[in-house]
Computed example of a mutant assay.
Amino acid sequence: MQEGQVDIKTPEYVSLQFQPAGLGSRAAALMMDQIILSILNILIVVILFFATTGNNSPFGFYLFELNSTLWGVAIVALFVLNWGYFFALEYFWGGKTLGKRLLGIRVMQENGHSVTLLSCFIRNLLRIIDMLPASYFLGMIMIFLHSKHKRVGDIVAGTIVVHERRVKGKRKEIAIEKEMRNRGLRKEDLSVEAWALKQLGTKEWSLVKTYANRFSQLPRSERNQLSKKLADILFPKLGLNMEGKTYNELEDTLLLLYLEMRDEWEYEL
């Protein structure tokens, strides 16, 4: 089945066009993730084996005598690692695992927003079904046959995996990056929790991007007014207090927000 375009209208009435990721790219990304997980699993098992063999270890080191409880805890830890790897990375890393990032694909909601905690939880919990009867057979069949290349987890969670291409226009990026460099701003300076950033969607990204692109072109008085208006809209959603802040401090925070959001939202589909 060839990959086609999917048109989606966001809650903000913005029309977006997506190219769903097909079976080949998704399988390749999963294979990379499984290789990474396999290496981690083997390392944990080997370390635990030598830690529980006691004086019988051929390497002559030990931490604990053979303990069934410890192995039970390890089995639970391995399950959490293998399931939590996909859940944590997709939620906190803009819908991407390491494999997806290398392949240039990402998970997002069908309304164009980034994945929520609930949708990310559901789609990854239902991997158990997609894996049946073995080796993601059901999931692969669903991806191949579904018009939007969805597996069971995607259908139930309302998510879609899409290709992304970075925006090629760099003139404005360079200008704003120069401004931020002159101000000594880095992403690490933004004191906003990851869960708070998840409250921002395409509408907020559009506002922040427009602000950053017009920043150096605006007269000082207009820039101050725009900074104040944008801060009034965004800061309450992020749990930031703007009271007592100077215009320069408002600008710094808004530019840092642009820098943080750009990694997740600056793409063409």
Rank of each mutant, 00 (worst) to 15 (best):
Y211C: 02
F86M: 01
L70G: 09
Q19M: 12
L257M: 03
F215R: 08
I39S: 09
G22P: 00
Y13G: 10
V107F: 03
A231Q: 07
G54N: 03
S15G: 11
S147F: 00
S25Y: 06
G54E: 01
N55K: 15
L118K: 14
G139M: 01
A74G: 10
K237L: 07
W71A: 06
S114E: 09
V80Y: 08
K228W: 14
H149C: 08
L207A: 12
V167W: 10
D7E: 15
V162C: 04
Q5F: 14
A212Y: 05
V6I: 11
G24A: 12
G72H: 04
T97R: 09
E222D: 13
D189S: 06
T116S: 12
V14M: 07
A21R: 02
K229C: 07
L81T: 10
R165T: 05
A51S: 12
V156S: 05
F121T: 08
E173Q: 14
F64D: 03
R106P: 04
Q19C: 07
P133R: 05
T246C: 05
V46C: 04
M140C: 13
Y258C: 07
Y247E: 15
L234N: 04
K229Y: 08
I129L: 09
P236A: 00
T10W: 05
K100V: 02
Y62N: 15
L240D: 07
R262L: 02
S147V: 02
E164M: 01
K228H: 14
I128Q: 03
N124Q: 00
C120V: 08
D130E: 01
Q34K: 00
Q5L: 13
L226K: 08
G24N: 12
S68N: 12
K170I: 09
R123S: 13
R26W: 04
S135G: 10
F49C: 10
L40M: 11
L255E: 05
N56R: 10
E222W: 11
F59Q: 08
F86N: 11
T210D: 13
T97S: 11
E164V: 09
